[in-house]
Nucleic acid binder design. Structure first.
Length: 352
RNA sequence: GGAGAGGUGGCUGAGUGGUUGAAAGCGGCGGUCUUGAAAACCGUUUUCCGGGCAACCGGAACGGGGGUUCGAAUCCCUCCCUCUCCGCCA
């Protein structure tokens, strides 16, 4: 969540950032709401100060055996007024918080400015894209042909957008997870195996709530959600903690399944294992000092790229433009590799 | 599932409805002493919000929320969490 102080002090910075992201946010409305809220708080605090003073006097008078009726009379009706102000302060606070929760992060100055993905900037390219002297098959044909992916039986169990990994398919998935974990652990990341369920408060912490509730699976009759990414438990691991600066950076790696409702993406990437309701992910996460967090980001990106290099998969590193940036991200360097290739084949398929 | 105990500052741990933001100890910080350190002694040490250029002033916080009261860490309700015992169980 963007702090109200930042908006108070630098409204222009925030406005400019929102414009670059292509997001409509009424900063002026937030500022005037904040002013109104503070005005109420001042009035309330003054009133409470008055009442507290009298209450203290009553205590003193009683101890000294003096008459207190006059004191009681002097604060008559104050209670109701206080309750009234408290209520309106609470309401203003909630309104303000709700608005603030819907403001995305301020992009870093190094992020290319542009309204959509066409403004993304390539910052690195690695490896050779293989040429085939035959027509390559999409992965779902290969997978079902080898009997290592089974989409139909998955759909029997649960429905569309799930897959059953079978035999060597299951083993391959497991081996990849393990390979990634081991590689990162060797390089100083601490492995975490977190709960795959998180409560609402945690989802607010990562910006998934309140704005993106429809992307999540909520467990009926509870305050629990299936995690859409390991980022949720990893970020909340240290929520409301003050970290010792000496111990930074704290580097974590976690394997978790991820669950996404993919609402609003019906008809997109409908075949294969690209856009599933459940998928496996090995996540890297670093808690770093703000002074060197962007160096740390580069370290982390290199670390992730290493996996692709070890697997001899060609890739590009793309800096996402302001218009393509995720909600809580100040900067995103994304690795485009195999998935992009699959998508390309898939989209060609789609056009036929 | 049944029965019970408990949640207080960085930690341990007192606390009768009224100068208790909170004893004491530990830890931290500053100082005296010392060549330096330890010990001892003295002092100091919560956070958030608001107002103010500032010194400072006001408000809030004793697991969360609500209630009673002029006044709540203390009484009542409710939720959450931790621990112990019994039962059941992968």
């Amino acid at each position: 969540m963007i702090s109200i102080e930042l908006i108070r002090k630098n409204p222009e910075v925030v406005k400019k950032a929102m414009k670059e992201r292509g997001v409509e946010v009424d900063i002026e409305a937030i500022i005037s709401l904040d002013l109104e809220k503070r005005r109420i708080q001042k009035e309330l605090d003054d009133l409470k100060a008055e009442k507290n003073k009298v209450s203290k006097l009553i205590g003193q008078y009683k101890r000294e055996g003096k008459d207190t009726t006059e004191l009681f009379n002097s604060i008559k009706g104050k209670g109701e007024k206080i309750k009234e102000l408290e209520e309106s302060l609470k309401k203003k606070g909630e309104e303000l918080e709700d608005l603030l929760y819907r403001i995305p992060n301020i992009p870093h100055e190094s992020v290319p400015v542009g309204e959509d993905e066409s403004f993304n900037k390539e910052i690195k390219r690695w490896g050779e894209i293989r040429d085939f002297d035959f027509e390559p098959l999409p992965h779902w044909d290969i997978g079902t042909g080898l009997d290592i992916l089974d989409f139909e039986r998955a759909s029997k169990i649960v429905g569309a957008r799930f897959v059953v990994y079978k035999g060597l398919g299951a083993k391959l998935e497991r081996a990849l997870i393990n390979f990634m974990l081991e590689t990162h652990i060797e390089n100083g990341y601490t492995e975490i195996l977190p709960p795959f369920i998180a409560k609402a408060e945690s989802l607010y912490g990562t910006g998934n709530l309140p704005k993106f509730e429809e992307d999540l699976f909520k467990l009926k009759g509870t305050d629990w959600y299936l995690i859409p990414t390991a980022e949720v438990p990893l970020t909340n691991l240290h929520r409301n903690e003050i970290l010792d600066e000496e111990k930074l950076p704290i580097r974590y790696v976690a394997y978790t399944p991820c669950f996404r409702s993919e609402a609003g993406s019906y008809g997109r990437d409908v075949r294969g294992i690209i856009r599933q309701h459940q998928f496996n992910k090995v996540e890297l996460m670093t808690y770093a000092h703000p002074d060197n967090s962007y160096d740390e980001l580069e370290f982390l990106t290199r670390e992730a790229a290493k996996i692709l290099e070890l697997l001899e998969l060609p890739y590009r590193v793309m800096a996402l433009s302001t218009g393509d940036l995720g909600f809580s991200s100040a900067r995103t360097d994304t690795l485009k590799s195999l998935p992009a290739l699959i998508l390309k084949i898939f989209r060609q398929e789609e056009q036929k």
